[in-house]
Write a protein that binds this DNA or RNA. Structure first.
Length: 595
RNA sequence: GGUUCCGUAGCUCAGUUGGAUAGAGCAGCUGCCUUCUAAGCAGCCGGUCGGGGGUUCGAAUCCCUCCGGAGCCGCCA
């Protein structure tokens, strides 16, 4: 299979040499999409070459076009508009690629070999003191999709989750439950475990605030009140007890964490994400100290006069970073250093992706530099996939103000909306309720996932809870609908295998558009993976679906009387469905049989 | 104070390393179901690409500056 670029870039370099007597690097030759209002399949911008040759662009374009047409059989014709050389590529070229691709069920993906790089993707990484919300949903969907894209692009991928199961925040929930819970359990309350624990986290905050108010009324300063409030001092004491291994505290911690995990598991299942391995901070938070000690020995790190161990990053314009407190205890960074080193021993990765919000950009920048300075060359392969926050019309989600969009609620509302639409469309006549619910889940999740993944991960995005997510237009369900249309045609055709057709079959313009789009699929996978951007794949699938629907409106498949043409179309639409299915699967989105 | 990112149609977003008359969806208005599922297709409406300079044959894209918004710079996580 030959790509358009490989066909042309060398030839352009030759043409420039032959026509203008200038030497250029074939790799520097770039093509762009031809403006739809002109004829052509690809376009060369000739300004740079015209300038070098001292010709006017129009004339230079004509000379290059003539050379290419004479020397490359698949360059059928050309036209020059201003400085743009539009090349028309023969149907033979597109058809040959198409036929080759249609033989291969997994066309576009690259199967990893034993030599392929190993990439670890760490994502989700929730705290165990409250339920998952919309921000976590974006994180989870991104992490899963990026993993799938990297895999499709030919990497070995491990998906891991580092659960933050310890610390003061968990102790807050534990303390509030102990004081106010009256032994309430998920069973007794009928609440999901993570919701129950989250409820006590809120309770803690409520009581803590009340205590602060009381202390302020007694003349304490804000700072004193916050530090002296009994809820806080008791939570801190509980954390000390936890670290000291107090059996009662540990038992409570294990009990409540187990509730949370059961809750998370059901949310993960609904989202369709998975992990190859879970890590828990309770088991990793002490890592890293020895690394800091070594760094001190080797002189990379310094001990400050107050006893704290620091990494001096003033040369990088980043200040200094404390890695061990003056009392010898570790900070978050210490733990992350240790975790990274251990992780690398366990999985000798070429790349390690951290899917974490952009508020931690500074942290990961420092982490990478610190590891490199400590002599770990592999630190170069660490990458912070820094995604933007999901914002509401009134700004950031704030748990204290009750504006947090709960993940389970959101999923349920999407399913309900899809369910209502299924009934409204009346496609549910012969469907059992369970089947309808499954379909509603598929459609609702497609809408939600596509909504969150179609936006460039790096950018912050807006979600308005008052307006439900669309099911029409540039959406997941629209793309699903496209595949369902194709499956429907195939079902009715009665065919089970790809029919044969001659490569010389007539190709209409809309069909050629589809051939060209399908030809891009492998490059889209590579592009999306290289940029860690599911949005690239989402847009491609939309383009393909949109173009198919235009084709569907223009041309009939089942009623086409010319058999060669019908067979070609059957294969064409099969390939369209196949590419969309694969691409959407990389986004974690399923395609239903009917809708 | 230092630093990073963002500002494109009423709303949500695309716009490859600078390239042709800046594109989609939603919302609004028109058409198209006796023909493979209308969650579709076609059309209309909608823009001083935050403002102003500069570089360039060419700028939404690069540089400077101003305005507006967000993040980070902790012996928190």
């Amino acid at each position: 299979m030959q790509t358009l670029e490989s066909l042309l870039s060398g030839a352009v370099a030759q043409a420039v040499q032959a026509v203008f007597n200038k030497t250029i690097d074939p790799a520097s030759v770039v093509f762009q999409q031809t403006n739809p209002q002109f004829e052509g399949d690809t376009t060369l911008v000739v300004f740079p070459y015209a300038k070098a040759a001292g010709k006017n662009p129009e004339e230079a374009g004509k000379m290059l076009g003539e050379y290419l047409q004479a020397h490359i059989a698949d360059v059928e014709s050309f036209n020059v508009v201003k400085g743009f050389l539009n090349l028309v590529i023969s149907n033979r070229f597109w058809m040959a690629n198409f036929i080759e691709a249609s033989q291969n069920e997994s066309f576009g993906t690259v199967a990893p070999t034993p030599e392929s790089p190993l990439v670890v993707v760490e994502y989700s990484s929730p705290n165990t003191n409250k339920p998952l919300h919309l921000g976590h949903v974006r994180n989870n969907l991104l992490g899963y999709a990026v993993g799938a894209l990297l895999q499709a692009a030919g990497n070995h991928v491990k998906l891991v989750n580092l659960v933050n199961d310890r610390g003061i925040h968990i102790c807050k929930s534990m303390l509030a439950w102990q004081k106010l819970g009256n032994g309430e359990t998920p069973e007794s309350s009928g609440m999901k475990g993570d919701k129950l624990v989250g409820k006590y986290y809120v309770e803690f905050d409520k009581h803590y605030k009340a205590e602060i108010a009381a202390l302020l009324a007694n003349g304490k300063t804000q700072d004193e009140a916050e530090k002296q409030a009994p809820m806080m001092t008791e939570a801190q004491e509980m954390l000390r007890q936890w670290e000291a291994g107090n059996p009662e505290v540990k038992a409570l911690w294990e009990k409540m964490n187990a509730w949370v995990y059961a809750g998370f598991e059901s949310t993960y299942k609904a989202m369709g994400v998975r992990f190859d391995k879970f890590y828990y901070e309770s088991q990793t938070y002490l890592l890293g100290k020895s690394i800091v000690e070594e760094g001190l020995q080797s002189g990379v790190l310094q001990k400050r006069t107050d006893g704290a161990v620091i990494l001096n990053l003033t040369a990088e314009k980043l200040d200094q970073k404390v890695l061990l407190r003056s009392d010898g205890t570790s900070v978050y960074m210490t733990q992350d250093l240790g975790t990274a080193v251990e992780r690398r021993k366990e999985f000798p990765f070429q790349k390690h992706i951290y899917v974490v919000g952009n508020e931690q950009e500074h942290h990961f920048k420092v982490l990478k530099i610190a590891l490199a300075k400590l002599g770990h060359a592999w630190a170069d392969g660490l990458h912070h996939l820094s995604y933007g926050m999901v914002e509401l019309p009134e700004g950031k989600m704030k748990s204290r103000e009750g504006t947090v969009v709960d993940a389970d609620d959101l999923i349920a509302s999407m399913e309900a909306e899809a369910f209502a639409l299924i009934e409204e469309k009346g496609i549910d006549k012969d469907m059992a309720t369970a089947e309808k619910e499954k379909l509603a889940h598929q459609i609702g999740m497609a809408a939600l996932k596509y909504f969150l993944l179609k936006v460039d991960p790096k950018k912050k995005m807006m979600f308005n809870p008052k307006e439900s997510i669309d099911l029409q237009g540039n959406t997941g369900p629209f793309i699903q609908y496209t595949v369902v249309r194709i499956r429907n045609i195939w079902r009715k055709s009665g065919l089970t295998a790809l029919p044969a057709f001659p490569a010389t079959v007539t190709v209409h313009p809309k069909e050629k558009e589809l051939l060209k789009l399908l030809d891009q699929f492998p490059a889209v996978i590579q592009n999306a993976a290289a940029n860690y951007s599911p949005a690239v794949m989402a847009m491609y699938c939309y383009d393909l679906a949109k173009t198919f629907n235009q084709f569907y409106d223009l041309h009939d498949v089942l009623h086409e009387t010319n058999q060669d043409m019908q067979h070609f179309r059957m294969v064409l639409i099969k390939r369209v469905a196949n590419a969309i299915e694969m691409g959407m699967a990389m986004l974690g989105i399923e395609m239903p049989e009917r809708m």
